[in-house]
Computed example of a mutant assay.
Amino acid sequence: MGNLTDTVKTLLIANILFFVGTLYLGDYAYQLFALWFPENPNFGIWQIITHMFMHGDQSHIFFNMFALFMFGSVLERSIGQSKFIYIYISAGLGAAGLQVLFSYIGYYGALQILTDSGVALDQIPTMISSTLKTGEFPYYINDSNVEAARSLVSNFRTPMVGASGAIFGVLAAFVLIYPNMPLYFIFVPIPIKAKYLIGGYFLINLYSAVTGSTILGPSNTAYWAHIGGAVVGFLVMWYWKRNSFNQNRWN
Rank of each mutant, 00 (worst) to 15 (best):
I192F: 13
M127C: 04
N155L: 00
Y107A: 06
I204K: 13
I79N: 15
F62N: 07
A67C: 14
G92E: 02
F53L: 11
L98E: 00
V210L: 05
W36A: 11
F63K: 06
I13L: 07
N243R: 15
G26P: 11
W36C: 09
P138C: 03
G94Q: 04
Y88C: 02
Y140Q: 06
Q58Y: 15
D122T: 04
S244F: 04
I105V: 12
F18D: 00
W46P: 05
Y107D: 05
M70E: 01
I45R: 14
I105H: 09
Q47H: 10
N180K: 15
Y140E: 12
V232Y: 10
R249Y: 15
F43H: 11
E136L: 15
A225S: 14
I113Y: 02
L235G: 07
G97K: 01
W36I: 08
I192L: 11
I215T: 06
V20D: 06
M1Y: 12
M160E: 12
Y108L: 11
F37E: 03
L171I: 04
L203A: 15
A96Q: 00
L235Q: 08
G228C: 13
D6I: 09
Y104W: 10
N248G: 12
P189W: 02
G106A: 07
I49E: 07
K193N: 07
F137D: 00
L203Q: 04
I192N: 12
V100Y: 00
I16V: 10
G80S: 14
N220I: 05
M237Q: 08
F202C: 11
N145M: 11
F37D: 02
N40T: 04
S244W: 13
L132G: 02
F245G: 10
W238H: 02
F234P: 04
Y107K: 09
P38S: 09
P218Q: 02
G200P: 13
H55A: 09
Y30L: 12
A209K: 02
K195N: 15
G21A: 01
A148N: 05
M237T: 15
E39I: 01
H51M: 13
H55R: 00
A29K: 00
G199F: 11
M127T: 11
Y201I: 04
L203F: 12
L98F: 07
L183K: 13
R77P: 14
P179K: 08
G228T: 03
T131N: 09
Q247Y: 11
N180Q: 14
Y104D: 02
P125Q: 07
T131Y: 01
Y24G: 10
W250R: 07
Y201T: 08
S213P: 07
F102E: 00
I204C: 05
P179S: 08
A96M: 06
V153F: 04
K83C: 08
F19C: 14
F71N: 00
S59I: 14
Y30E: 12
R249M: 13
D143V: 01
P191W: 12
N180E: 08
I124N: 06
A222R: 05
L12K: 07
A34L: 12
G56K: 15
L68I: 14
N15V: 00
A225H: 09
P38K: 08
F62R: 12
M52T: 03
G162P: 03
M237A: 13
L93Y: 07
N15Q: 15
W238D: 15
Q247S: 15
I45S: 04
V146N: 08
T50Y: 03
L121E: 10
Y178I: 02
I227D: 03
L216C: 06
A34N: 07
A95Q: 01
T126F: 03
K195M: 15
